[in-house]
Design a protein around this nucleic acid. Structure first.
Ligand SMILES: [Mn+2]
Ligand SMILES: [Mn+2]
Ligand SMILES: [Zn+2]
Ligand SMILES: [Zn+2]
Lengths: 144, 144
DNA sequence: AACACTAATGCAACAAAGTTGCAATGTCGG
DNA sequence: CCGACATTGCAACTTTGTTGCATTAGTGTT
């Protein structure tokens, strides 16, 4: 994220009350280069006292407030990632590219590049197009 | 599909034993312009005697044999569609475009066009790209 | 610092999609 | 028509995520 703000300040900025679980979940997300599942997050926090439902509700609150967004992985579980990750471009939920490693299954949020262009809103055969999600499959730097 | 073959012949061609449930499921898929969920298919067959597990296993068998492919919808349920739908181009699982109507939630398999080009296998910052799924959001002809 | 309002938490129960085990049945080549 | 083997039907199970509700905690105000 390369943000200078601490988790408490970020939560406050996004209209979220500052609680222990939220700080811990946000901390894990800040330090991850890839989108994380609920169980990834539970695993990284690694505290048997953490409540699973609270983490689900935390992730939903983050997403509702626009701090995170979610993307389904190949097993159709939700993964969560901060906006403003790996770039300072706001990654809108409308136009988005995700790189899915076919080896480790990790999903990286990618900036939209010329290779995955945003089309103008336009019509093709009666289909009005307003946005894209580009899901790019391949092998990530960690795996090769 | 615009195929001249009947369901029995198609099943045989794909190495699937011809059974009553498989014929009925395939018939529903042939006559749908959009990808269908398990529950869509159960609803379209509309026979309380049909067994849900058999339909799940039917769809898995179709997909394993390459008769259908599956795509997750926005609720992360699997939708199934024949290959060779809406076009005579084989839609490989590797490179694919799906149009998701934001109004009716239906998903249409789309031929790859110049608007959603297949990239060559190439590297960007250590990411080796081998294929794309283009998920196009908008409004379908039925909804506008 | 204490108050009060409200939101968040923890726990149990629930929901929905899909899978698995197994005995019974059906398909199909010979 | 037979026999080998795949498929079916049923019940039980798994996994991910949600909901209800009583208790606890955060936050702006006094
Ligand atoms: Mn993303
Ligand atoms: Mn498709
Ligand atoms: Zn990888
Ligand atoms: Zn529509």
């Amino acid at each position: 994220m390369a943000t200078k703000e601490n988790p408490g300040e970020i939560l406050h900025k996004y209209g979220l009350k500052v609680t222990a679980t939220r700080i811990r979940v946000l901390d894990v997300l800040i330090n991850s280069p890839v989108a994380l599942s609920h169980s990834d997050i539970i695993g990284l926090i690694d505290d048997p006292m953490i409540d699973k439902v609270t983490v689900y509700r935390t992730l939903n609150a983050f997403t509702t407030q626009g701090l995170t967004h979610k993307v389904a992985n190949e097993d159709r579980n939700w993964l969560y990632a901060l906006y403003f990750h790996n770039s300072n471009q706001p990654a809108t939920s409308d136009d988005h590219a995700h790189f899915i490693c076919r080896q480790c299954e990790r999903i990286y949020c990618m900036p939209i590049t010329s290779m995955n262009p945003k089309p103008d809103v336009r019509e093709i055969g009666g289909f009005v197009i307003t946005s894209h999600e580009h899901r790019i499959h391949g092998v990530c730097p960690e795996c090769h």
